[in-house]
Design a protein around this nucleic acid. Structure first.
Lengths: 193, 193
DNA sequence: GTCTATATCAGGATAGAC
DNA sequence: GTCTATCCTGATATAGAC
């Protein structure tokens, strides 16, 4: 049951996907959520409060779509799991779009905003390590440093492709294809170490 | 001889590097340039005019530092030229920082701004084709589609690494190292086609 | 061409009724 | 909890003197 707060957060996610974090106007959010601006301040204290909670909200959803799998399906091979994990972020669905836009905004804002950097660095590190672990399952016997480097490249590439997709430079299928090619290349490279 | 306009554009580049495109305040720009706000409107019509001309200004500078080479030096091998072209964008100098920040802002803004998309797509295409051509010089006999894909991945990765560097996630030397690794991997991959 | 005001406006935030 | 009405600040933009 969606409470008022949740309803506002969902609206905020939509507005952010449309206008960006820095483009979010409280008035537009109010309209989108079908409430008054005053109510937003009642629930979230100020604009920053809305932003903070919405980013959290979006992040929770992301973990869900990244993690969730039907337990009846045959388990994935390490290789498949790796590919799936990375390609999940390149899907043309509302959730992924909203999440990726927000992530891009966060990354871009962090360039000019000290405060955001720490959070972002931490989140990135967790992600890189996750991918490095998956790479290690596909290619055991490879030194951790090589795994880490490959993971950093793959995740950075994913961010780059994601931005190109969101900014209209390439189509989603093409982005996925390029990503698959990079995974192949990195695995081949690791195999030769 | 720096005219007033140029002086303002140089100041604008600095302010954008510090605050971002969306964070540029005309008043702050005036202070940075040591002139009044009115003068800025006199020269550039409005804030958007400042932005447009500054982006153009920055772009011109980028072409200069990307292209310029001492004619006395021994000519670069194709492989070196490729590496140099890509790594030039990963240097901790004022020009590159300003340029990369502006580019990142442009990319991020384009996600929410239809108007910017076309320019950005065109500029990206030119860049991708340039890199694809360099790749083709290193690895002739490779189909153009494979070259294009590799070029797209390398440039997208470069954007991703650049953003991580600018947002404080990684250090510049590490970014360069990762970029070199990717170039090696792509060239190896193309060699086996 | 350049400055000192100052008008104008958008958007964040609050007061007070219900 | 929610709304209507309004205040206030910060930022763009202009008028007019020099």
């Amino acid at each position: 049951m969606a409470s008022r707060s949740t309803q506002i957060l969902e609206a905020a996610a939509r507005v952010i996907a449309r206008r960006g974090v820095r483009g979010l106007r409280v008035e537009e959010l109010a309209a989108e959520a079908g409430v008054s601006t005053a109510l937003i301040y009642y629930h979230f204290k100020d604009r920053t409060g809305v932003l903070r909670q919405t980013l959290e909200f979006i992040n929770d959803r992301a973990e869900r779509y990244t993690t969730e799998r039907d337990p009846d399906d045959p388990p994935l091979s390490p290789r498949e799991e790796l590919e799936e994990t990375l390609l999940l972020e390149l899907q043309d669905t509302v959730d992924v779009r909203e999440n990726s836009s927000a992530w891009g905004e966060l990354r871009a804002s962090a360039v000019f905003d000290e405060v955001l950097r720490e959070d972002l660095a931490r989140a990135t590190l967790v992600w890189v390590q996750e991918v490095a672990a998956l790479l290690g399952q596909v290619q055991p016997m490879v030194p951790a440093s090589a795994l880490a480097a490959a993971a950093e490249r793959l995740t950075a590439l994913l961010e780059g492709l994601s931005m190109r997709w969101l900014s209209g430079g390439i189509k989603i299928d093409h982005a996925r294809e390029l990503m698959r090619g990079a995974i192949d290349a990195e695995l081949a490279g690791l195999g030769q170490v």
